[in-house]
Design a protein around this nucleic acid. Structure first.
Lengths: 300, 300
DNA sequence: AGTTTATGTTGCAAATAATGCAACACAGTA
DNA sequence: TACTGTGTTGCATTATTTGCAACATAAACT
């Protein structure tokens, strides 16, 4: 029937555990539950036996596994066969993203992409993620990995790839800043006296400004820099406190010099995705990466 | 991917005409158009060549026809195989509907149903369609063909099968009523002087009452009867004017004695469907007919 | 026994997506 | 030129899907 539903079914058939399967499919347990119910209703048969403690496949469920597997395989097969007949998509694609994104999100996408479209030359340019959207709109790039803007510019197509919490970071090595932090409990941090390293622009900056405003604190801005990696560097050297998406930290060789501060309220997470101009989605080159990305989201 | 979309695609591939195909699928042309677009986008390939005058399958489209056909066939196959393993659903199903419905809608559904579930005994009872819902709610019947109520009673599952305009009918043979009608143009019909044969209760009655109220006319009710077929009889005999769903007329052996009056505004059409209690949908017997009905809707 | 933990399901409000109408664009025809 | 037939698109409406929170249930501790 519907591939998404088949995938959910298979995930559950494999793990026999709603919570795990739902996580694997990036949906809530209730969604999974209701999708299975709908499948069962359409087939007029129970697929799983659940007794609130264990989940097991019924006989019909086992048969349906076979169906689901072959059905999904045939879909993949067909799509692959299209590529063959397409005589190899050829051309070049200008892609922009931050250093971090190139290590994490982009890497998995591109590796899949390259298998399917080996003849497309990817021109990858890295830079500050805050610039992504404007570079797309000005058509300096074909596509970009970007943070989801709070208000989506008209004509921009955005597809979320993942979330990353936005966290406060501080140096761990002994220094003035570190001393200030160590001498106060988290709830009484003297924000107006702590030097901040803040992004020059972009979502991170906006979130931070709002956060301080809400706390009614005027921050002490030590310096404004471009690029999340730069923030990590500055902070690790003891210049002050910074704010970066957690994923930047995870990929940083400097992470052992950094500690995450717990603050309240937490900052809203960073939403990372791939974007391009809507009108350019018709371009086969651009569409190809767009589609591969879309499928990549559920496949892990 | 999604069966509904595959069916739309095949319908279009067959007729090569959006308007026709969309009608065959019971959707608007715009819906069909957008579904095809979405399919094309997901595949990253054009399936049809349209030049605003003609529609033709592309090469990729032709390949996709094969895929779609086998994919749908396999789904059907699987569902059939379930029935085999189900070792024949067995039991009896109490079904209620009007005489007319038994001739039209129900007939096609039951013929398909019987093929799939030959061992289920259908206890069919016919009667006034206006009684359907109450008989269901009181569990006198398992399922019923009914007119969709204006406000759906809680716990009632209703699935629309088709629409039928609600029309005014009058006798064609020479008689007093016929003379009155013939002597007035449609726009100046003397409604307060024409004898009406009206349904005792049900949707038809409500619609009619509203219609007169809106026209600010107090109708001359000659008699109140139960059952649309009864209305046709009375009208054909010259007792007065009636209101019935057009489908009743189409199936009546008396239709040559009847004329349809055009009125303004037209009455909202009658919505016919199958209904049962929601909680009873879990019953495999009831569910089986429910599902067969659901699939029957798109298959013509 | 009583509490805690683990797990699937359901009510409900909010977010998303699908739909049809009406307007539009475009190309033959009268 | 006006008109007709055809597919597409903007937009408001409707229907569906979703996730959170509350619930229900059963095992495992204490």
């Amino acid at each position: 029937m519907d591939n998404r539903q088949l995938k959910m079914f298979l995930a559950l058939a494999q793990s026999l555990h709603f919570a795990q399967a739902s996580e694997a499919c990036h949906v809530s347990a209730s969604t999974l539950s209701r999708n299975i119910q709908s499948l069962e209703q359409r087939l007029g048969v129970m697929l799983f036996e659940r007794d609130n403690r264990t989940v097991t496949l019924t006989h019909h469920g086992q048969l349906f596994v076979q169906y689901a597997v072959t059905s999904l395989a045939q879909w993949d097969l067909f799509k692959t066969s299209l590529n063959v007949h397409q005589n190899e998509l050829l051309g070049e694609l200008k892609l922009y993203c931050s250093v971090t994104a190139s290590h994490s999100f982009l890497h998995q996408i591109l590796s899949r992409y390259r298998q399917q479209f080996p003849r497309v030359e990817i021109k990858l340019r890295t830079g500050d993620v805050a610039m992504s959207v404007s570079r797309i709109i000005n058509e300096l790039e074909d596509m970009a990995i970007a943070a989801k803007p709070d208000v989506m510019p008209a004509g921009l197509a955005f597809q979320t790839i993942g979330l990353s919490p936005l966290v406060f970071i501080a140096p761990t090595k002994r220094c003035e800043v570190q001393a200030q932090i160590a001498s106060h409990p988290a709830a009484f941090m003297p924000w107006s006296e702590l030097p901040m390293i803040v992004p020059e622009q972009g979502i991170g900056r906006k979130r931070l400004d709002q956060w301080f405003k809400r706390k009614n604190v005027r921050p002490l801005i030590y310096s404004e820099v471009a690029g999340n990696e730069a923030i990590v560097s500055m902070v690790s050297l003891g210049f002050g406190i910074g704010v970066v998406p957690k994923i930047v930290l995870d990929n940083s060789p400097l992470q052992h010099l950094i500690q995450v501060l717990s603050v309240s309220p937490e900052l809203a997470p960073f939403e990372v995705g791939i974007c391009t101009l809507k009108k350019r989605l018709k371009n086969p080159l651009i569409n190809s990466l767009w589609q591969v990305t879309k499928e990549g989201i559920d496949k892990n």
